[in-house]
Write a protein that binds this DNA or RNA. Sequence first.
DNA 1: AACACCCGCAACCGCACTATA
DNA 2: GTATAGTGCGGTTGCGGGTGT
Length: 256
Amino acid sequence: MGRKPCCEKVGLKRGPWTVDEDHKLMTFILNNGIHCWRLVPKLAGLMRCGKSCRLRWINYLRPDLKRGAFSEIEEDQIIQLHARLGNRWSKIAAHLPGRTDNEIKNHWNTRIKKKMKDLGLDPSTHKPITQHPKKYDIEHESSTSHSKQQQQEDINPGLQKKQEDLQLGSTVDLWHGYEMLWETMGNESRIDPSSNSNGYSPSFSLDNSLNQSMGESSFFQEDSLQCWADNVESVLSWDEFLPIEDIFSFGMLPVN
DNA sequence: AACACCCGCAACCGCACTATA
DNA sequence: GTATAGTGCGGTTGCGGGTGT
């Protein structure tokens, strides 16, 4: 007996979102916030399921999204975090403000994986590719035990931290490998992590709580939304709604 | 110019987890 | 304790644009 579908799919629109739909969703969230995703499409006048609306908001419409190409330092971070966390994209995304799990996952699968393979590194183990195929089984075992690991983390975050530290200790060599990897790739001039990683300066942003707790209702409090709306008003005409990437194309200029 | 192929990305699907009645 | 609804997450798919022939 499986779960019920998240919604009745009959009569619902699927596929790419139109500008009008984006506008409707954004306007609704700005005015009302989010209390129940299932109700959002109904109240916003969209023929979409709540899940689709949520995904669209999180992956595309969210105001704090950085968008644009990943910088070397971001890729670097992703590789490090993947070595520690595996395919837990949402956890990885939590360390990269302005990036979504979906975006990181896509980037990993399309670019980083390939780069690592080209350099003779196994993307799943982060180690040089060897002649021992059994390694895959070991990695696969560890990656499929995430739910257990997650439970442990939730129960005892301190223990989890210690374990991660230990893993970090064991990845010193790995890290050294990354340094060499970047040099090999012609990225000898590493960017200072304390500076804005990709050279972009956001034209608007919400407070830090946004990055830390997208799912929490506090984020959707009127103040934050109003603040964001006020900022958006200065660059975005609601009469001629522009896709976010268009806003960023002139709102976020490379620093150098 | 037309076609085939490749690649990147947005969106979907289904399962897992959590909250609540 | 159990059933159900709501949400989050990771894997996968399919479309569209770019490139090669």
